[in-house]
Design a protein around this nucleic acid. Sequence first.
DNA 1: CAGAATCCCACGAGATACTG
DNA 2: CAGTATCTCGTGGGATTCTG
Lengths: 119, 119
Amino acid sequence: MTDALDPDMFAQCANVTPLIQIGDKWTSKIIRCLENGPRRFSELRVPLRGITPKVLTETLRAMERDGLLTRTAYAEIPPRVEYELTSLGRTLLEPMAAMCSWAREHMETLLDARDRHLA
Amino acid sequence: MTDALDPDMFAQCANVTPLIQIGDKWTSKIIRCLENGPRRFSELRVPLRGITPKVLTETLRAMERDGLLTRTAYAEIPPRVEYELTSLGRTLLEPMAAMCSWAREHMETLLDARDRHLA
DNA sequence: CAGAATCCCACGAGATACTG
DNA sequence: CAGTATCTCGTGGGATTCTG
């Protein structure tokens, strides 16, 4: 059902994230990663380009605490843990879509203005 | 035309801002402050509860650089400076409304989950 | 009034190494 | 594989003081 995450799925978002953000630096990206179903810890690390395990753990714990996602650990070897958006977490997809839409429409204008100001 | 800003206009947003944010800590609040027309430096300081002049200046300069607002200085004594949203800046009002709407609907649920997790 | 100049600090987040 | 445990550091943002 869920295909592998695109390693470059955030390549275009480099400038967007600092301007419009949900939660901390990584929260909104994690939400997008979980949009199509549960994902494993290692799976998330791929598109989140070089996030350290420590920071990923911290972020996931905070999101779990806020009821945005659930953490499910399977007693297997090797261990497997899956993260999945809750219904509350999924409600964030809507405002996020609005922000992405804004970014697609206006981000270039903003970056142009910024560049012009450097000259 | 524009009434004075409500000093407590952000009283309810204390928990919302850290979760959903545009730009840095103050940007989204400044946008709201300018929603109904131009405002002066001192006028902005009121609802922005204890923002220091340095930080306010930095934030306004960054927003000006990004083309979100314009700065107009009048050669008077005492000096008067007005800040006003550009059309680009006004386009942010729409995604902001979506986020505020989300907050109104779901923030309590989130804070409940957070509280429950502390127990 | 609208800032500029300094000084300062917490904390988000990265690097690195280790483990059940 | 899915984390912990430390250590470290940049910088966003605050406090304070001064000025055209």
